[in-house]
């Protein structure tokens, strides 16, 4: 049932019509998500809906995207929300630059805008004269947590590779930078760094080939857990249990792997709560609280077997 609602939400225009139940005086929050085909955002959406039911003092209109690069539908959603006259827009931008202009328009219309998950580009914000806080996890810091866990185990000179997310995606870049910070801090030996486009199957192939080229790999830093699973499978088929793997996101499927030691660690950024937290912050402002400023960091936590 809830998925049906989300599916309708994806067709943003229709959702707008359905959301005209604004006769009662509850504030209306427009939530703009990334691709709901992504488990991470799917869970986040579920969390937001549970949150709305629990609080019950606001209306939630949620819109998702067709895929990770479908910027157009996010922009359309902002414009529709403006027309709709929502009180707040809570947005996880698919592109850190493309979303600045429509969001500026929303702010000019007096709508409270909260930017979460991925920060809008500083330069672009300056250019448009936008002052907007960012609510979200520190992807780079999180990646460094995982990378540090690996660095501590391997010690100086440990040979590692990085499996990156989509080239050009902001969180992919931040996570890579975080891993590289750990590499620098622990003086690790970075043998190779390649993208597997967030994908299990591709990570499996790419890592197998890396392992062939560098049989002496000791540790793997994967920018998300889906790719970490692909790496673990590649290690199993290669019969190697001497290589440590860290991931990111703490999706349910990696739970058993961390328990039995196939993975060393992952990072939980409490994705399920992230949208809900951002909505709370937005509602505070709507209800007359102070404007948000700078970077409101959300909690991140290293998950290990201990």
């Amino acid at each position: 049932m809830k998925l049906l609602k989300i599916a309708a939400g994806a067709v943003s225009g229709l959702a707008m019509l359905a959301g005209t139940a604004m006769a009662d005086d509850k504030p209306v929050v427009g939530l703009i998500m990334k691709s709901l085909a992504n488990e991470f955002f799917q869970n986040m959406m579920v969390g937001a809906e549970a949150h709305q039911e629990k609080r019950g003092d606001y209306e939630l209109l949620a819109v998702g995207m067709q895929n990770e690069t479908d910027f157009e539908s996010q922009i359309n959603a902002v414009e529709n929300f403006i027309t709709q006259g929502v009180d707040a827009i809570v947005v996880a931008p698919a592109d850190s630059r493309a979303m600045v202009r429509p969001l500026k328009k929303a702010m000019d219309a007096g709508i409270v805008v909260v930017n979460f998950d991925v920060a809008l580009d500083e330069e672009a914000k300056k250019q448009r004269g936008v002052e907007l806080a960012f609510v979200g996890p520190d992807n780079r810091g999180g990646a460094k947590l995982a990378g540090d866990a690996l660095g501590k185990k391997l010690g100086e000179g440990g040979k590692v590779v990085i499996i990156e997310g989509n080239p050009g995606a902001d969180n992919a870049t931040q996570r890579r930078l975080g891993f590289e910070d750990s590499v620098a801090e622990y003086k690790l030996d970075l043998l190779d760094s390649r993208t597997a486009h967030w994908e299990t199957e591709e990570a499996n192939s790419v890592f197998s080939n890396m392992l062939t080229a560098h049989p002496d790999i000791q540790g793997v830093m994967a920018a998300n857990d889906s790719m970490a699973i692909g790496v673990v499978k590649a290690l199993e088929s290669a019969g190697r249990d001497d290589i440590l793997v860290v991931g990111f996101d703490n999706i349910p499927a990696v739970g058993p792997m961390i328990e039995d030691g196939r993975m060393l660690a992952t990072v939980d950024q409490f994705g399920t709560d992230m949208a809900a937290n951002a909505i709370d912050l937005a509602l505070e402002v709507v209800n007359g609280g102070p404007e948000l400023e700078g970077w409101v960091k959300t909690p991140i936590e290293l998950v290990t077997a201990d």
Partner: peptide
């Protein structure tokens, strides 16, 4: 084969 190799079924597999 995908499931047997990777031990998961992902709805975003095969893009």
């Amino acid at each position: 084969v995908y499931m047997a190799r990777l031990n998961i079924s992902s709805p975003i597999a095969g893009i």
